[in-house]
């Protein structure tokens, strides 16, 4: 089985709300794919449809080429964490994993393995109802790993985690991807995915807005602006303009250069024997890039309802 999620043309309506409006994307193995968008953009709905829990009005969602509902031992194909609170509170963590294991024809030994893997072994016999949200997230991850699946899908796994847990989660997700798994992680906060996701699927209003690598997204948002600090302002402006760049003076000893990459600027200035003290490519933050992309797609923007 190919470790992929292929979503194609999904549409889903809840009453008068069009939750998904032609959602299409592919999640590839070996990387963490961030699934980001404002609240209400359709992240959870898409994930429920991928898992066969909700039926799409149109379109398909395939795991390695097969519809989820046709999978045998589905937990060995896809591990999912949708809602860490989806527990019987009076059942112990180990027993929660035990019935899941039994449903897949697995035994209690596998439950113990994933408990150890997620650091819950010492509290495994306690009632899950007494767990903190962070512990429940770990238990949800343990459940997702039960079948050792090549595809992992998590809905807002950072919610409720303390900083230490977030660091652990990031490393964990990366290590899962490094093993060759396809990892899809949703979040409504881009900052949570910074330094974790390799690839991003940005959605808004039930559609994909951007499907791109993190580097490309930042580059696109940054433009080709370079900040230059030089004591020889006039000479610098002359040689750079000559080389085809647009130069603007922003402050004494400071220039903003557009139209040339930073390396080229350094080369032009060196060739023209113009002194400079600093050349810095301006980098937009991931958050900025995301805000730029989704500003039209926010369902409920701050400062007043749109509908």
């Amino acid at each position: 089985m190919e470790a992929t999620i292929e979503v194609s043309g999904l549409r889903k309506r809840f009453g008068s709300a069009q939750a998904l409006d032609g959602m299409s994307f592919t999640v590839l193995p070996g990387q963490v794919t961030g699934f980001v968008g404002p609240n209400g953009a359709g992240k959870s709905t898409t994930m429920r449809i991928i898992l066969g829990l909700d039926a799409a009005d149109a379109g398909t969602a395939l795991i390695g080429g097969a519809a989820y509902r046709t999978l045998r031992h589905p937990l060995s194909h896809v591990g999912a964490l949708l809602d860490a609170a989806a527990l019987q509170p009076s059942r112990s963590a180990r027993n929660h994993l035990l019935w899941l294991a039994h449903s897949q024809g697995l035994g209690g030994r596998r439950a113990d393995e994933v408990l150890a893997l997620t650091g819950l072994a010492s509290v495994a016999r306690r009632k899950a109802g007494g767990y903190s949200l962070g512990m429940r997230q770990r238990l949800g991850i343990a459940a997702a790993l039960l079948g050792d699946p090549p595809v992992i899908m998590m809905d807002e796994p950072f919610n409720g985690m303390d900083p230490e847990g977030i660091v652990w989660m990031r490393g964990f997700l990366k290590s899962l991807a490094a093993e060759g798994r396809a990892v899809l992680v949703s979040s409504h906060l881009m900052s949570e995915l910074q330094d974790t996701a390799d690839h991003l699927i940005v959605i808004g209003r039930g559609q994909v807005i951007a499907d791109t690598s993190v580097a490309a997204l930042i580059e696109a948002a940054s433009g080709e602006r370079v900040e230059l600090r030089t004591p020889a302002r006039t000479e610098a402006m002359t040689v750079l303009a000559h080389a085809g760049a647009t130069v603007a003076a922003t402050a004494p000893g400071r220039l903003t250069v557009c139209g040339l990459p930073a390396q080229k600027i350094v080369a032009v200035l060196t060739d023209g024997h113009v002194p400079f003290t600093e050349v810095a490519a301006h980098r937009a933050s991931l958050e900025e890039a995301y805000m730029e992309l989704t500003k039209d797609a926010v369902e409920f923007p701050a400062g007043g309802a749109r509908r």
Binding site: P29, S76, H77, Q104, G105, L106, G147, P149, P150
Partner: peptide, 11 residues
């Protein structure tokens, strides 16, 4: 592609 290490029993 990642291969599941679990060999589940009958389904």
């Amino acid at each position: 592609p990642y291969r599941s290490g679990q060999r589940p029993g009958p389904d």
